[in-house]
Design a protein around this nucleic acid. Structure first.
Lengths: 139, 139
DNA sequence: ATATATGCAAACGATTTGCAACTCC
DNA sequence: GGAGTTGCAAATCGTTTGCATATAT
């Protein structure tokens, strides 16, 4: 069952506004974005939301478990929609910025085993593989 | 064979100065530190190096493959000595900041396999497992 | 002697915040 | 009507840089 954006927000106890819907909808076409990319993308649709508001909204979405904040090895935060069922990791092309998601259950269970051996209770994890994608390899 | 700090720097083509030696020596007692921790730690030893210089030196060490710059999910960079032979990953306690290093060759080879399946040439990777350490679990 | 290193203060980029005006229910 | 939202500008935090001075080889 797919929820529309306002329904999703309401379900998470977030007050619905046009700005928040616009920001949430960005993730339908952009899997991995930073705050300024959201700002620019909305501007191209004639929607101008101040960067302060974008950060505030992203913060509230993150707290409500709607999105995840990621870091791809540089100075800004990247956001992606959170999918409750799967945890995926990322291949990141350091030349063109391409991001490929992957899921690997063997790695997941090895991580749990390692954590267990260290008496460590896992909350989350991030696995980023940096390198060169096929396309950039031919340039 | 263990090199002393000045010898190591000279071997990497870095001009030796007391400041650089002091900063490099920090890593003998601190495995994972940020720039301000280095600054404070040196101050307690009566050595006052401007934060600008610390960043410049860390940058040159990183370029010379002496240290790695890491991110543990927050806004500042963490530095650790680079060990050429092993690549290790990190368990990070989100309560007390404890960092445990681990090496797992199965995960390493799974990563290579995944990259391969995506026609991706791996340069580096980071695997961070966030959670609660044994000590914090009992609090 | 010359290239490099350093400190200081100012500049920077990403993010956050105070405050007054506004909008949703 | 009142709580939550927004824009603006200023503040903040980590990090970098320009420049004049000091130091290593």
């Amino acid at each position: 069952m797919i929820l529309d954006s306002s329904e999703l927000l309401r379900n998470r106890g977030i007050k619905v506004t046009p700005h928040k819907i616009a920001i949430l909808n960005i993730f339908k076409s952009h899997k991995h974005v930073d705050a300024y990319q959201i700002n620019n993308s909305l501007k191209m649709d004639g929607i101008d939301i101040s960067i302060a508001t974008i950060y505030r909204v992203l913060g509230s979405f993150e707290k409500a478990n709607i999105i995840d904040k990621l870091n791809f090895g540089n100075d800004q935060s990247i956001y992606e929609l959170k999918n409750v069922e799967d945890h995926h990791d990322h291949l990141i092309c350091t030349q063109c910025g391409l991001v490929i998601e992957f899921i690997n259950s063997q790695i997941e269970s090895l991580q749990l085993k390692i954590a267990d051996e260290n008496n460590f209770k896992v909350q989350s994890h991030t696995l980023n593989i940096y390198g060169t994608c096929a396309k950039c390899m031919n340039n």
